[in-house]
Design a protein around this nucleic acid. Structure first.
Length: 111
DNA sequence: GCCATGGCTAGTA
DNA sequence: GCCATGGCTAGTA
């Protein structure tokens, strides 16, 4: 399901989006790991921005991205609840504090 | 100026 | 709880 990304998108953003699309079903990745694999270890916030802005357009598995502690960190409660439900529907258990067990479900991007 | 981070320290218990 | 971080975009000149 190789989707050609528009060249109007900056190279870093293209790499981030491609990496996000490769996070497997039933696994999670962290903002920082995606940023690092895209070549900019401190650009985790840029991953955040892209997820926020482009999830719909590029069908990104936004729910599979958590922070470095495995926590769901969305700002509003309804979205946090939705993310937890989407993860559990894939077999990823989320505890009462909205945390995923990274050693068990974490996925490391290549590179 | 945005943004759903991350790494640090201070301040409690 | 603070604040430096970073790639990008919107909006002004």
């Amino acid at each position: 399901m190789t989707l050609t990304l528009p060249s109007s998108l900056a190279p870093f953003s293209q790499r981030v989006i491609t990496l996000l699309q490769s996070v497997p079903y039933g696994r999670v990745a962290t903002y920082g790991a995606i940023a690092a694999a895209a070549g900019s270890p401190r650009a985790a916030r840029q991953v955040v921005r892209l997820l926020h802005a482009c999830s719909d357009k590029y069908q990104l598995p936004w729910h599979r991205i958590v922070n470095r502690d495995g926590e769901i960190v969305l700002s509003d409660e309804a979205s946090r609840w939705r993310q937890a439900r989407l993860l559990e529907a894939e077999g990823v258990s989320v505890d009462a504090r909205g945390r995923v067990d990274l050693p068990r479900f974490g996925w490391q991007p290549p590179g």
